[in-house]
Amino acid sequence: TGQSYENMVTEIMSMGYEREQVIAALRASFNNPDRAVEYLLMGIP
């Protein structure tokens, strides 16, 4: 849902990432938050 997506974005942003980076990582990871954080740390393949 939209609210849980926003919660994911906010939670990952709280780790120090910009909203645009978080959204790009979530898009690349098909909204998998664990993989999105991994992409933010290691780069999107």
Rank of each mutant, 00 (worst) to 15 (best):
T1E: 11
T1R: 11
T1K: 13
T1N: 03
T1F: 01
G2R: 05
G2Y: 13
G2L: 08
G2I: 15
G2V: 11
G2F: 07
G2A: 13
Q3P: 08
Q3G: 11
Q3W: 04
S4C: 04
S4I: 14
S4L: 05
S4V: 08
S4H: 12
Y5N: 08
Y5G: 04
Y5W: 07
Y5V: 08
E6P: 03
E6W: 05
N7H: 07
N7W: 06
N7Q: 11
N7R: 11
M8N: 10
M8I: 14
M8C: 07
M8E: 04
V9R: 00
V9L: 05
V9H: 00
V9C: 04
T10K: 11
T10H: 12
E11R: 08
E11T: 08
E11C: 02
I12C: 03
I12F: 08
I12L: 14
M13T: 09
M13R: 02
M13D: 01
M13A: 09
M13G: 05
M13K: 01
G16S: 14
Y17R: 01
Y17E: 01
Y17K: 00
Y17G: 01
Y17L: 02
Y17D: 01
Y17M: 05
E18T: 12
E18H: 11
E18W: 00
E18F: 04
R19C: 04
R19W: 02
R19G: 02
R19Y: 05
R19K: 10
E20W: 05
E20F: 02
E20L: 07
E20M: 06
E20K: 15
Q21P: 06
Q21C: 07
Q21V: 09
V22A: 10
V22R: 00
I23H: 10
I23Q: 12
I23S: 07
I23P: 03
A24Y: 04
A24Q: 13
A24L: 08
A24F: 04
A25S: 06
A25N: 02
A25W: 00
A25C: 03
A25G: 04
A25P: 01
A25E: 01
L26G: 02
L26W: 00
L26N: 04
L26I: 00
R27F: 01
A28R: 12
A28G: 05
A28N: 07
A28E: 15
A28W: 07
S29M: 02
S29K: 06
S29V: 04
S29W: 00
S29E: 06
F30E: 15
F30S: 14
F30L: 13
F30T: 15
F30P: 06
N31E: 08
N31G: 09
N31C: 06
N32C: 08
N32D: 14
N32V: 10
P33G: 05
P33E: 06
P33Q: 11
D34S: 12
D34K: 15
D34T: 14
D34V: 12
R35K: 12
R35C: 07
R35I: 08
R35L: 12
R35W: 08
R35G: 12
A36P: 02
A36R: 01
A36N: 00
A36E: 00
V37W: 04
V37G: 04
V37F: 09
V37T: 11
V37C: 10
V37R: 15
E38D: 15
E38L: 04
E38K: 14
E38R: 13
Y39A: 13
Y39S: 13
Y39Q: 13
Y39M: 14
Y39V: 08
Y39K: 15
Y39R: 13
Y39W: 09
L40D: 02
L40A: 01
L40F: 03
L40S: 01
L40T: 01
L40C: 03
L40P: 00
L40G: 02
L41D: 13
L41T: 15
L41C: 09
L41Q: 15
L41I: 08
L41Y: 10
L41K: 15
L41S: 15
L41V: 11
L41P: 03
M42L: 11
M42N: 14
G43A: 11
G43W: 07
G43E: 13
I44E: 15
I44V: 14
I44A: 15
I44T: 15
P45R: 07
P45S: 11
P45C: 03
P45Q: 09
P45K: 03
P45T: 11
P45V: 06
